[in-house]
C-alpha cells in the first residue's frame, strides 16, 4: 500500500497527532507491505519538512497560496498529489484541521472515508477499522469500499514512532497556483494565549464542570491545581456555554478527545458526551459532591466532596509536597 500522511503543523513544528498518524501508517505498511510518505503543505515550511523527515520521506509543497490552511486549496493539492502518486491510503490525525481539509479531499476522491479511527486490523486480506459512534457508546468495525481510502485517526490511540538517526529523503511538489480555487478568504485566527499545555497534549488534565461558578473560580481552582501538577486545563461544555471556560478547553464528543495518564474531573456529572472525550484516560479521578453522580462509574478514584472546599486544600497539600 502507498500511504500518504498529511502533516499538520503550526508553521514551525509538527503537531504531535501527526506523529501518531505516522505510527498508524507504519503499522499498516508493515502488515500489507508498501511505503509511507508525508505531505507538508504551507509556506516557508523548511523547518517543518526537516522535522518530518526524521520520521518518513517527505513531499513538501511550499507556496504563498498555501500560507493559511484554507480547505478548498489544501484539499485540491492533497487530492492531486494522491492521485498522481497512486496513493491507496491517506491519513491524518483527527483534528478540526483534518476534518475540514481531509474531509473535502475525501469528497474530491470518491468518499471512501472513515473518521476518528481508534484501531485497525487485516481481516482476510481486507483492511478494517474500528471507530466510535453514538458519542463513543458503540465501537463499530467498518470496511471502506472505494479507492483511495481516507482515514483520520485519534492520536491517543496510536503511538508516535521514534525519529530515525538519518533523515529520510525530501522532495518538493510543484503546484500551479493559478489552478487553485480561490473562494475562501482567510482573515485571522485568534489563538488562545495560555501558558498551559494543550489539553490534547498534556500528561495530566484537570477539568472543571458546572460546579465552578465563574472564571475567577475556574482560574483559582482548576487553573491553579493544573499548574501545581504541570497539567493542562479542560472543561465540560457547561462551562464553555456559560462563557467561563474558553472553547479550546472543551473535552467531549464535540470538543477535544483526550487520553492523558491522569484526568481529574472537578464537579462534572459524567454525561456520555463528556465521557466520549476522556474515558480512555489511563487514570480518572472524580471529585463531586453528589455520591450518585454518574462520573464515578467511569472513575478509578472518587472523592465525594465540595470542590470549593477540597481543591484549595489539595493545591496546598501538593504544594507542600
Amino acid at each position: 500500500m502507498h500511504i500518504l500522511v498529511v502533516a499538520e503543523h503550526d508553521g514551525t513544528t509538527i503537531r504531535p497527532g501527526t506523529l501518531s498518524a505516522v505510527g498508524f501508517a507504519n503499522s499498516i505498511a508493515e502488515k500489507t507491505g508498501g511505503k509511507v510518505e508525508s505531505l507538508v503543505l504551507g509556506h516557508d515550511i523548511d523547518s517543518v519538512v526537516r522535522e518530518m523527515a526524521r520520521y518518513t520521506p517527505v513531499l513538501g509543497c511550499d507556496s504563498s497560496a498555501l500560507a493559511n490552511p484554507v480547505a478548498d486549496r489544501y484539499a485540491k493539492v492533497i487530492a492531486d498529489v494522491a492521485s498522481e502518486r497512486h496513493d491507496d491510503l491517506i491519513v491524518a490525525a483527527s483534528t478540526t484541521y483534518a476534518k475540514d481539509i481531509l474531509g473535502r479531499a475525501g469528497g474530491l476522491l470518491g468518499g471512501a472515508m472513515a473518521s476518528e479511527v481508534v484501531g485497525h486490523e487485516l481481516r482476510e486480506g481486507q483492511l478494517v477499522f474500528q471507530r466510535p459512534m453514538f458519542a463513543g457508546a458503540i465501537t463499530a468495525t467498518v470496511a471502506l469500499l472505494g479507492h483511495p481510502q481516507i482515514v483520520t485517526i485519534r492520536a491517543a490511540a496510536y503511538e508516535a514512532p521514534r525519529p530515525a538517526d538519518t533523515a529520510f529523503d525530501t522532495s518538493t511538489v510543484d503546484i500551479d497556483e493559478s489552478s487553485l480555487p480561490n473562494h475562501i478568504c482567510f482573515e485571522q485566527v485568534e489563538s488562545k494565549s495560555s501558558d498551559r499545555p494543550d489539553v490534547t497534549e498534556a500528561r495530566i488534565v484537570v477539568s472543571g464542570g458546572r460546579a465552578i461558578k465563574n472564571s475567577e473560580d475556574f482560574e483559582r481552582l482548576v487553573g491553579k491545581l493544573a499548574d501545581q501538577l504541570g497539567a493542562a486545563t479542560g472543561s465540560s461544555r457547561a462551562l464553555v456555554d456559560a462563557g467561563i471556560a474558553s472553547n479550546e478547553l472543551q473535552v467531549g464528543q464535540t470538543g477535544k478527545i483526550v487520553a492523558p495518564d491522569l484526568y481529574i474531573a472537578l464537579g462534572i456529572s459524567g454525561a456520555v458526551q463528556h465521557l466520549a472525550g476522556m474515558k480512555n484516560s489511563k487514570v480518572i479521578v472524580a471529585i463531586n459532591n453528589d455520591p450518585d453522580a454518574p462520573i464515578f462509574d467511569t472513575a478509578d478514584y472518587g472523592l465525594v466532596a465540595d470542590v470549593y472546599e477540597i481543591v484549595p486544600q489539595l493545591i496546598e497539600k501538593i504544594h507542600a509536597g
Binding site: I184, E187, Q188, S191, K256
Partner: peptide, 11 residues
Amino acid sequence: ETDVGIEVVVV
C-alpha cells in the same frame, strides 16, 4: 471553532 482557536474566514 478550531482546535487552535477561533478562525475567521470570508466565503
